[in-house]
Structure formats: C-alpha cells, structure tokens
C-alpha cells in the first residue's frame, strides 16, 4: 500500500467522499456519531428489559435470587471470558486494517467470528440443559421447579430466555456483518473503505459485549 505511506493520511480518510459531504473527515465523523447514537438506542432497547428485571428483582428478591442459583455459573463465566476475548480480537482487527495489513485483518476477523460462534454454541448447550431440567417455560413446555417459589422462578426464567435470546439475536446479526466484511477483506479491493467498515462494525461488536456484561451480572450473579 504505497499511497498510504506517502500521503500519511490515516487509511480510513482516503478514497472518494460521498456526494452529500464536503470532506472525508466530515463523512467519518458523521458515520461514527451515527453509529454511537444507534448504540445508544440499543442500550435503551435492552434498558427496558433491564429496568423491568431490576424492578422484579427488588420486589421478588428471594424467589429471584434462588432461581438465579439454577443457572450454570461456570458456563456463563466461560462465555463471558470468550466474548471479552472476541472483543480483543476485534479491536486488534481494527488496528491491523488501519495499518493496511490484509492478512492479519482477515485472520483476526475469522478468529472473532469463530469465538463468537463458540459463544452461541455454548449458549445453545446451556439452553438445552435447561430444557432437559424442565426449566424452560416456553411454548407451554412443562416447568418443574424444585425450589420454594415456582411462580417467581418462572418469571425469572422468562426474563432469562428473553434477555439471552435477544442478546443472541444481536450476536447473530454481528456475526453476519463480520462474515460479509471478512469476505471483502479477503479480496482487499478498497482498503480505506474496509478500514472504515471494520471500525464501525467493531463498535457494534464491542457494544454487544457491554450488553452481555450487564446481562451476565443481572442474571447469573444475582444469586445471593
């Protein structure tokens, strides 16, 4: 990438400007701000759920704490560690794409996708276990709970499936986006554009981490 070193502009600032903008700086700023705002709306989307959960956690403290004890803390913690690691690989991807290193960019993207996919697999396994233990009050499946307050526990598990489900949905969307970018990065036709795309999708991916940290803390760690 000889041009990149000659002009010394960051890679993402090169290439033609879209017609509604004056400069590439303006365009990048606009894209980034737009993405951050979108993430703000995502926070409030999950926020409704978090607010509802916190409310019930306060008024049904004991039943919820006990129900949380029935989640698999080890697998949950393992999954959290995995997501944090994929956050690292994604942040590294961004650095590599900015430094115009096609190979590293591609393989780091692949690593991110692989770790993300592993997360989904483990999550699926957890759900399957809960299904076997009859802790899945979904679609009229039997719910048999050994503890003191089965109704509140059912409410808890309702939250559990909605929250982790919605989060998993966001992961799948993210995986799809990263998959597309990985193919584009493999061909490496328009490096400035790739650098910009990696940056914007990196924001999304990291944010899915943030959401998971909250989900994990609320569901798995509220057991006392």
């Amino acid at each position: 990438m000889p041009t990149a070193t000659k002009t010394r502009k960051p890679l993402g600032d090169q290439g033609p400007v879209a017609e509604q903008f004056e400069t590439m700086g303006q365009q990048r700023d606009a894209n980034r701000l737009g993405m951050w705002m979108f993430l703000g709306t995502e926070l409030l989307l999950f926020g409704g759920l978090f607010g509802a959960f916190v409310t019930y956690r306060v008024i049904h403290a004991e039943g919820f704490a006990e129900a949380a004890g029935h989640l698999d803390l080890t697998l949950g913690a393992l999954n959290t560690a995995l997501l944090l690691t994929s956050g690292l690989t994604m942040a590294l991807t961004e650095q590599m794409s900015r430094a115009a290193r096609p190979k590293a960019t591609f393989w780091l993207l692949v690593a991110t996708i692989a770790i993300g996919a592993l997360f989904i697999v483990i999550k699926g396994h957890e759900w399957y276990k809960e299904y076997q233990e009859q802790l899945m009050p979904v679609l009229g499946l039997p719910f048999s709970y050994p503890g003191e307050q089965p109704e509140q526990a059912e409410l808890f598990f309702n939250f559990y499936f909605v929250m982790t489900g919605l989060h998993a949905l966001h992961m799948l969307v993210g995986l799809g986006v990263l998959g597309v970018i990985a193919t584009v990065a493999w061909r490496w036709r328009n490096p400035p554009r790739i650098a910009r795309q990696v940056q914007i999708s990196g924001l999304y991916w990291a944010f899915v981490d943030v959401i998971w940290v909250i989900v994990f803390s609320l569901l798995y760690l509220s057991r006392v």
Partner: peptide
C-alpha cells in the same frame, strides 16, 4: 470496553456526551 475497545478515549466530546446521555436516560427509567 467503552473507553479502550471502542476508543471513546480518542472520540469527540460530542460522542462522549451521547454515550453518557443514553446511560442517564436509562437511569431515569429505572
């Protein structure tokens, strides 16, 4: 994650304002 993975450290003040704003609104709700 926000500051280092998402590079809020090097973002414009405006972005930081919005990031805090969204959190603040969530706090109102709760």
């Amino acid at each position: 994650i926000l500051v280092l993975f998402m590079d809020l450290k090097h973002s414009r003040g405006l972005t930081r304002v919005y990031a805090t704003g969204a959190t603040l609104w969530l706090a109102f709700l709760i």
